[in-house]
Amino acid sequence: MQSLTVADYMNRHPVVFTASMSIEHAVERLLQSHQRGGPVVDDQQRVVGFLSEQDCLAAMLRDTYHNEQSANVGDCMFKGDVLMVVDHHSITDLAQSMQSNKPKIYPVVDSSGILVGIITRTDVLRAIDVHLQNHYRQR
């Protein structure tokens, strides 16, 4: 099981955002992709924040209340230390850390810190399930 890596199960084509993108455009992208949130990247594809559905909801409610469309992703995103995982990280190790850290989506970076995808709790569950199913079939 330790040989299963994040790269084996991550989404290599996630929806990503830039800080200058309007919140309305970001919401449109989330709704089309059915993704619950995603990394915010700079011009070098380095993660600078994270935008969740909850962040978008708060911004859109605020804009509706003030009857304007002024928010952008940079105004609403989480700007702290975004929990990320390296693509060669073990699925088992990630599953264990997901028990204490609560993000549902982790940006995946390569060894240079460049975004290469995302991995969700569902992806991790799928990886473990596939491994267990294959293990039981071999018995």
Rank of each mutant, 00 (worst) to 15 (best):
M1W: 09
S3F: 06
L4Y: 01
V6S: 03
A7V: 10
A7T: 08
D8P: 05
D8G: 08
M10Q: 09
R12V: 12
P14Y: 14
V16N: 12
F17H: 04
F17T: 00
T18S: 15
A19L: 10
A19D: 10
A19Q: 12
S20K: 14
S20R: 12
S20N: 15
I23A: 05
A26V: 01
A26R: 05
A26P: 03
R29Y: 00
R29L: 03
R29P: 00
L30D: 00
Q32E: 04
S33K: 08
S33D: 07
R36M: 15
P39K: 08
D42I: 07
D42N: 14
D43I: 13
V47A: 02
V48E: 07
G49V: 05
G49I: 01
F50D: 00
S52T: 01
S52P: 01
S52C: 05
S52N: 05
E53N: 01
Q54Y: 04
C56A: 03
C56I: 01
A58N: 11
L61N: 04
R62N: 06
D63R: 03
D63M: 03
D63T: 00
T64Q: 15
H66K: 15
N67I: 10
N67Y: 10
N67H: 13
E68S: 06
E68I: 08
E68G: 03
E68M: 13
S70D: 13
A71E: 02
A71R: 07
N72C: 14
G74A: 09
G74S: 05
D75W: 11
D75F: 09
M77N: 02
F78S: 04
K79Q: 06
G80I: 04
G80A: 07
D81E: 03
V82N: 01
V82C: 03
L83A: 02
M84T: 00
M84K: 02
M84S: 00
V86I: 05
D87P: 11
H88P: 00
H89T: 00
H89R: 05
I91K: 07
I91S: 03
L94I: 08
Q96F: 13
S97N: 08
Q99T: 05
S100M: 05
N101Y: 08
K102L: 13
P103V: 11
P103T: 06
K104A: 15
K104P: 09
I105A: 11
Y106N: 02
P107E: 08
V109W: 08
D110Q: 13
S111H: 14
S112W: 14
I114R: 15
I114E: 14
G117C: 15
I118P: 07
I119F: 07
I119C: 06
R121D: 06
T122Y: 11
D123G: 03
L125C: 03
R126Q: 05
A127W: 07
A127V: 00
D129L: 06
V130W: 09
H131T: 00
L132Q: 08
N134G: 11
H135L: 12
Y136I: 11
Y136N: 04
R137H: 12
R137K: 15
Q138D: 10
R139G: 08
R139Q: 10
